[in-house]
């Protein structure tokens, strides 16, 4: 695989795309888990399918259509939720499937043979082009800068938005800014693991990292490192076995995450037992 890495540009693109996407997943994944926006992110990802379809119909780059739809749905759900008119989970469910339906609808309106849309649904990291790579790298740069430049404000906002508002932080601005960077991140992930699988890549590394990190910053770093590991390992599995890359990456991430939860639960029980035993022993000794 290493020699292929040097020889073929598509392998270089894949490795770099996996790396940039992982930086995104590390940072955004931690935020959406803490802010309980996982389903919201899933809704945005699926709604962007409508943009892919519209892109094909209008003859523009489908991924640009996806960005438009992702941003529009993020702002739409955000604004409707803010008005308090409807329940957030209902709105997310609607955006989720109506976005998918629109994608199918737009493609059906196209004259001639329909294009193959499955690479948008399941991703194909080995098909990432230089242009895709630039797009992913730019989105990653924008998101990382937005998060790190305002890190102290983000920390206050994410921990307790009510208090942040009271001390004078513009929390409405942060809310929409957060929704925008989630939308952009989701679109960047579409090329790598696809619309349907993006959610696992956003949550699995961050959830695994949450088991053994205590600070917001360290959790983001560890989560990005884990995600990179999963991406590259999944890529290797895909290269040698011919399994679809998105499926390999997501299965691997999910398996490691669930395994970590299991190990952690067992370890917690052992620690409790041990503590109870030494405690009881101390009681006896004192008597």
């Amino acid at each position: 695989m290493l020699s292929a890495l040097f020889r073929y540009q598509f392998m270089q693109n894949a490795v770099l795309a996996g790396f940039f996407a992982s930086l995104l997943c590390g940072v955004i994944g931690v935020i959406i888990i803490e802010k309980k926006l996982v389903m919201m992110s899933g809704g945005i990802a699926h709604a962007s399918y409508g943009g892919v379809g519209l892109g094909y119909l209008l003859g523009i780059e489908p991924i640009l259509g996806a960005i438009g739809f992702a941003l529009a749905s993020a702002f739409g759900v955000g604004a409707l939720k803010r008005r308090g008119g409807a329940r957030a989970d209902v709105l997310i469910g609607l955006f989720w499937s109506v976005g998918m339906a629109l994608g199918i609808f737009f493609v059906a309106l196209m004259p001639g043979y329909p294009p193959d849309m499955s690479s948008y649904l399941f991703g194909n990291i080995l098909a990432v082009t230089r242009a895709d790579l630039w797009l992913i790298a730019s989105i990653t740069a924008v998101v990382l800068i937005v998060v790190f430049v305002l890190f102290d404000s983000w920390k206050a906002y994410l921990f307790d938005d009510e208090f942040a508002w009271i001390i004078g932080q513009p929390t409405v601005f942060f809310e929409y800014l957060l929704l925008s960077i989630i939308a952009l991140s989701v679109v960047a992930l579409i090329r790598v693991v696809g619309i349907i699988l993006a959610l696992a890549m956003l949550t699995a590394p961050a959830a695994t990292a949450s088991l053994f990190t205590k600070g917001l910053g360290t959790r983001m770093v560890v989560s990005a490192a884990l995600s990179t590991l999963f991406c590259w390992a999944g890529l290797a599995v895909s290269y040698y076995t011919g399994v679809s890359s998105g499926a390999a990456i997501v299965t691997l991430s999910g398996a490691v995450c669930l395994l970590s939860y299991g190990v952690r639960a067992l370890a917690a029980r052992q620690i409790q037992k041990h503590a109870a035993k030494t405690h009881a022993g101390g009681e006896v000794a004192r008597k």
């Binding site: 803490e34 430049v149 102290d152 920390k155 001390i167 004078g168 932080q169 205590k214």
Partner: peptide
Amino acid sequence: FPITAFEVVLTGRLGRGPKPL
């Protein structure tokens, strides 16, 4: 939420407006 007690108290010192860097 992954934050220490000290960091929580510090957020009380953040003041008004977004604070770049």
